[in-house]
């Protein structure tokens, strides 16, 4: 199992190949979104919507053994691709590691330039929500 840091480094390498071409980057992000495992329709409820995103983003988390697995979807293809990057780095990791993780890949791949300030804020909201889920599940384990 790769660590959160290693997965981020992997993402940075992949995006480096795109060489800053915005159109190619968009296509690539959407392609990643298409590969995200389907989220059950039953999970796409208002309670699971991440607040602060321009697009609709549904996010859930569950414990599988001692690790946390995330499920996500969005009504827009690019946002779905973006949330898939976070699912990729966090899913299957321990709660403690998720809560304390530093998310450094967005800056390295020039995400703000590519998705704009408002969507970057939305992306921040997704990270925060994932950490909150990890924190909640962590206390569940400890209880």
């Amino acid at each position: 199992m790769m660590s959160i840091v290693e997965r981020q480094e992997e993402i940075i390498e992949e995006f480096a190949i795109l060489d800053g071409d915005m159109e190619m980057t968009n296509f690539y992000v959407m392609e990643l979104g298409q590969k995200l495992p389907e989220m059950s329709e039953a999970s796409k409820i208002d309670d699971n919507i991440v607040k602060g995103c321009q697009s609709k983003v549904w996010l859930t988390a569950e414990l599988q053994g001692s690790t946390i697995v995330y499920h996500a979807d969005s009504n827009t293809a690019i946002t779905k691709g973006l949330v898939s990057l976070l699912v990729r780095i966090f899913s299957g990791q321990l709660a403690d590691e998720i809560v304390t993780a530093e998310v450094f890949f967005p800056e390295k791949i020039g995400m703000e330039r590519f998705i704009g300030t408002q969507r970057s804020n939305g992306f921040g909201a997704m990270i925060k929500q994932m950490k909150l889920y990890a924190l909640a599940l962590k206390s569940k384990i400890e209880a």
Binding site: M22, E23, N26, Q54, S55, T76, T79
Partner: peptide
Amino acid sequence: GVHPFDIGQMLDAS
């Protein structure tokens, strides 16, 4: 089948 946001962003990329 395509969300307007995605199209807006793709056009911006161009």
